[in-house]
């Protein structure tokens, strides 16, 4: 039963990682690619960590070996670090891209451009 849940988590994570990679081909400019490439992969990675934690708690109950406790705790620390650094990195890339002149393609509105223009005048 637990094995089925672990496989389900892994399947979800692989699906979202594939979609994230696919978005690099489907989308046309840096911002829309960032959406797929940074965030679908985060969601996929969260489910990998869930699968690892579930597996190690299960093994910890079966074998009582402390190395599974370490495995679970380290994965959770990695997940927290990922959830803190990923949005920060995506934001830094997007802002740097906009400031160095890559405008969003096919954008219906660009309020940030208007703000920078307004400051420059």
């Amino acid at each position: 039963m637990i094995e089925i849940i672990i496989y389900a988590f892994l399947a979800v994570s692989v699906t979202f990682n594939i979609l994230g990679s696919l978005s690099l081909h489907r989308f046309s400019d840096v911002y829309t690619r960032l959406h797929g490439a940074t965030k679908c992969t985060t969601f996929g990675t969260i489910f990998v960590v869930f699968a690892v934690v579930l597996h190690s708690i299960w093994q910890l109950r079966e074998t009582n070996n402390p190395k599974y406790l370490q495995m679970a705790l380290h994965s959770i620390v990695a997940l927290i670090a990922l959830m803190l650094t990923n949005p920060t990195g995506a934001h830094a890339i997007a802002k740097a891209a906009h400031l160095s002149g890559y405008k969003p393609a096919k954008a219906v509105i660009d309020a940030y451009e208007r703000k920078i223009r307004g400051e420059a005048q």
């Binding site: 959406h35 965030k39 969601f43 949005p87 934001h91 997007a94 906009h98 309020a111």
Partner: peptide, 30 residues
């Protein structure tokens, strides 16, 4: 707030301006 907005795909915070009380958000489907 801006990290939460960035973590949910479809929206991506580009800049936060506390002096205007506004966030600039790239939105994939406006």
């Amino acid at each position: 707030l801006s990290n939460s907005i960035t973590l949910t795909p479809g929206t991506l915070t580009i800049d936060a301006c506390p002096e205007e009380k506004a966030l600039y958000v790239h939105w994939i489907h406006v």
